[in-house]
Computed example of a mutant assay.
Amino acid sequence: MTGSMRSRHHDIADDLRQQITAGSFLPSERLPSETALADRYKVSTVTLRKALAVLQRDGLVEKIHGKGNFVRRPHRKIMYVGGWGTLDPWTATEPDSRVTIHSTALQAQAHLATLLKVPTGSPVVEFTCLSREGESPHGLARVYMPHDLVPPGALDGASTYREAATRFAFLGRPPTTAREAVSARFPTPEEASALRIGNTSVVLSITRIATDLTGRVIEATLLAFPGDRIDAVFTTHHVIDERKNKG
């Protein structure tokens, strides 16, 4: 019995996949309600939801809480350029791309105080930048800066800083060094909600720490991208030993 139920929801998933591929349901179109689809396939809503879960995992269908199931647009990948600490300008500024920016003043606690190397309770500013292509989010950046280093225009949303935020670049002054730590992991509940992905989807996580000439941390950025929507490229620059060349 279990085998036939499992087979049935895969059959339904295959049928819906074929309809989506054939264009019977268009990108961004809402699918019929789960009840209507269950009636159409003469199965329980539990079986129908298992079929939709297969399509959600495959990235064909997106479930938006309270609204229903929608056909996903094919994702265009964006590129993160390591070393420069920015999204590739060509993919970041497509006509359909936009970024929303929110700034919040807060006190550095535990993890944040450690990232910025400041005493617990120090005043910092958080900039949350969410990048979207159409209605699909494709990147989340949380930028933290010591309050005294925040340029005035950054809080006012001046165009220079909006452009930097669109590329997830440095918001403050150019750093002397930037260290980027990359990992693949499951999203936090906040990231899953902002990026509209499942809790078991993989995100590419980049922690970028920028320091000045004195070694002070001037900016700490936590970046999260859905794994299927990002490519990251890192270029290594080899330092040539001038003494050897002279010899």
Rank of each mutant, 00 (worst) to 15 (best):
G121C: 12
R76A: 11
Y41T: 13
T120N: 04
A154I: 01
K117A: 14
V182E: 00
E219Q: 15
P174I: 05
N245D: 15
E133V: 08
R49S: 14
G139Y: 03
A92N: 02
R208V: 02
V150G: 04
T128E: 07
M5C: 14
L115I: 00
P95F: 11
F127S: 14
L87H: 09
P146S: 14
T207E: 03
T236E: 07
G83K: 14
R229S: 04
R179C: 15
N199Y: 09
L171Y: 10
L222E: 06
P89K: 05
T120Y: 06
A141L: 06
R179W: 12
F170P: 04
G85E: 07
S103H: 00
R179D: 09
R167A: 03
T211H: 14
G68V: 05
P152R: 08
A220D: 05
G134S: 13
D212I: 07
A36C: 14
T221R: 04
A13S: 13
N199F: 08
T166I: 10
T100V: 01
Q56Y: 03
D58F: 01
Q107S: 11
R40W: 10
D156C: 05
I101F: 08
H147A: 13
A194E: 07
S7I: 09
F127I: 15
V182N: 02
L204K: 00
A220C: 05
Y144L: 07
G23L: 11
A164K: 01
S122K: 15
W90R: 11
R8P: 08
D14T: 08
T128N: 13
K117R: 14
F186Y: 02
F70E: 04
K63T: 00
K77L: 02
A181Q: 09
V54L: 11
H147N: 13
T100E: 05
T45L: 15
K77G: 04
V124S: 12
V118Y: 02
N245R: 06
L60W: 09
S7M: 13
L116P: 04
V182F: 01
H111F: 01
P175M: 07
L55T: 12
L140P: 07
T177Q: 10
V239C: 07
V125H: 09
P187N: 00
T211W: 08
L115H: 00
T214S: 12
H10T: 10
P95T: 04
T177E: 12
I209W: 00
A178F: 10
D148C: 05
C129N: 13
T35P: 15
V81Y: 11
L149I: 10
F25P: 03
D14N: 15
K246E: 12
D39F: 10
L115V: 11
L140G: 01
E219R: 03
K63R: 09
S193C: 11
S122R: 12
T235Y: 12
T35R: 09
G215A: 10
E126N: 09
A53S: 14
A141E: 03
V233Y: 11
P27D: 09
L106K: 01
S28A: 15
D241V: 02
F225G: 02
K50T: 06
V71T: 06
Q107H: 14
L37T: 13
S131K: 14
V233G: 05
T236A: 13
L116K: 05
